[in-house]
Amino acid sequence: MNLFDALTALLLVLLAWRCLIVPDLFRSIVLFVVFGLLLALTWARLDAPDLALAEAAIGAGVLGVLLLGTWRALGSPRRGETPSSSLPAGLRVLSAAGSAVLAGALAYGLHLLPGTGDGAGTLALETLPLPATGQPVTAVLLDFRSYDTLLETAVLLMAVVGTWLARSPLLDALSSEDATAHTPVMPVLMRLFAPVLLVTGAYLVWAGAYTPGGAFQGGAVLAAAGVLLALGRRLGTAPDAGWLLRLLLVLGVLVFIGAGLLLMPAQNAFMAYPERWAGLIMHLVEYTLAVSIALSLLLLFTGRPGLRGISG
């Protein structure tokens, strides 16, 4: 461990601490985004570029946007305008002590762990030439443990439906007045950035098979393009989702389940693909998943079921 790593680790803890204790909600959000970026850097230092990309795109990017959107929906409260934590002091001390004990126990436990040589991870690297994708993380996500990935994509559908349900009783009366809407620079920014984001997102999905990247990372970048358009008032919300939007939202899951179920009788196992077609199917799954993920994340941001284009 060199000085740089030690500094990063220290800064991570410091940022997390500050993020929790600052009284100003806005600052807390900004600190959280910075924390996410630093965490991405940490993953990169740990030779986990896939996680770094995912953390930067989703942890810092999408989450930051969602938090800021929520902050605005609350009426942009500044210091002192939000009720501070109502926990009694005794309970706070107790939870702090509990967290400290937990952290200590985990640290000691991790310190005791042996480095196992015969686990699933090693086996995955040894088996790697077999599957159609050459990238180890993609191979685990889309082949060895594709079942987990498939189930996780269903979570997004639940989250989107959940937001619609949570929003309607609370936030329907909210005004959507937005300071960024009418300014000469926004159209320029959109014209310049939206295509770049689309290309970058598509590249990340495509590259996922060979180098770090994939449907989640690429989808998050694609969603960022949508968020930009929504902020610039080129993409509006609608009270109901049209059939095409609904189809695109679940396309990834449908293709994933469909490929698994249709080929099951022939392969005698769910999501076992014939060797000739495996590459093609996995690419199809990645692309459709990326579209569904991007749209789900975008809808989490806009908070309403439907989308509509606004011509400028």
Partner: peptide
């Protein structure tokens, strides 16, 4: 570009 636009929006706000 991003810095310029961000700067503009913050200043305007």
């Amino acid at each position: 570009t991003a810095a310029t636009v961000g700067c503009h929006l913050i200043a305007r706000n």
